[in-house]
């Protein structure tokens, strides 16, 4: 952290003012109770999405508006904050997301997801890199990871190497950068995110009946729960995982979310609880006056808001009952 923390005064005050425009629970309720997806979308037109919403001719294309909103949000926070490179670190997640999509398209021929124009690399640079195998414009660390993926994939044709390697490099990079900048707040946040990912990996591997060795390679390092303690859990019943984490922050999340996943086969509750967990964690930091915490908190809140809008609109388009939608949306 910088010695003069008052450099954050401007950006934090501005974020506080912007924060008041986030959609609140009442607005989400109105969206959920709306009679159609178009009506639900109308709620957005009253809020910060008014300008973009006028462009939308077909409700099914709402993703482009959400992507544009996310990009605008990141650009704005980077512009007003004093250390854009720290915010850029949070945007790295989207580079990794885009690389995953591109690699899967190239190697597996599937279109897994939309590209999101938010990362630190321009989309055409990434496309060029993956399609032409020319990684010159990538960050050095990424370049190495990407090279490794190509190599390993050609060797054993295992699609898992894409996700594993990219996630690994993402969190390594982020944690490294957080340490570099002496931001214990960010480091702590990333460690928690690694923990949550590892927990999900553990359950997924357990459900697929894969081996302990595989789990070992799949878990990310740097988490607060040690990798070897997690690997043991693959042969244990759920109760021992719960008791192992009983005094940690993750107790509730595991006992509710993981149980539901194992019982009903649906990970959506765990996903929701994980997001809510990070939201709660960041809410504490949002009270800081001089620091990056409120900026990070706002970015996260916006990401959650966009996620929720997506859940509601998809639910409305597919005519899901209001209760089913309400269950899934994240706390705001």
């Amino acid at each position: 952290m910088p010695i003069d923390d008052t450099v954050y005064a401007y950006s934090v005050a501005r974020i506080k003012a912007i924060e008041t425009r986030l959609l609140d629970q009442g607005q989400f309720d109105r969206m959920i109770n709306a009679s159609s997806s178009e009506e639900a979308f109308k709620v957005l037109t009253e809020s910060g999405y008014a300008g973009a919403a006028a462009e939308l001719t077909d409700i099914h294309n709402f993703e482009s508006i959400l992507a544009a909103e996310l990009k605008d949000t990141f650009d704005m926070v980077m512009k007003i904050g004093p250390y854009p490179e720290l915010i850029g670190m949070l945007a790295l997640r989207y580079d990794i997301h885009n690389l995953k999509v591109l690699f899967k398209a190239k190697f597996l021929g599937i279109k897994s997801d939309l590209l999101i124009p938010v990362g630190t690399h321009e989309l055409d640079k990434l496309e060029h890199a993956v399609n032409e195998g020319d990684y010159r414009y990538l960050q050095e660390k990424l370049r190495r990871a990407v090279g490794k993926i190509t190599e390993e994939f050609l060797l054993n044709r295992d699609p898992q190497v894409i996700d594993l390697n990219l996630d690994r490099i993402l969190y390594e990079q982020m944690i490294y950068a957080a340490r570099e900048n002496n931001s214990s707040f960010l480091e702590d946040l990333f460690i928690r995110q690694v923990d949550l990912i590892n927990l999900k990996t553990l359950i997924r591997v357990k459900r697929m009946g894969l081996t302990r060795d595989f789990l070992k390679t799949a878990l990310l390092p740097h988490g607060s729960i040690r990798v070897d303690r997690l690997t043991i859990m693959i042969d244990e019943p759920l109760e021992s995982l719960i008791s192992m984490l009983a005094i940690s922050d993750y107790a509730e999340l595991v006992s509710e979310g993981v149980r539901e996943w194992l019982d009903k086969g649906s990970a959506s509750l765990l996903e929701k609880l994980s997001d809510d967990y990070i939201t709660n964690h960041l809410k504490q930091g949002r009270r800081v006056t001089f620091g990056i915490e409120p900026l990070v908190g706002y970015l996260w809140a916006k990401e959650i808001e966009i996620k929720n809008i997506r859940i509601v609109l998809v639910g409305k388009i597919n005519k899901l009952p209001a209760e089913a939608i309400r269950e899934r949306i994240r706390n705001v």
């Binding site: 009679s35 009506e39 109308k42 009253e46």
Partner: peptide
Amino acid sequence: VSQIDARRSDIRYCLD
């Protein structure tokens, strides 16, 4: 009530 709500938000849209 939802009609009134919609009416109200239309007016709000214009005023905004």
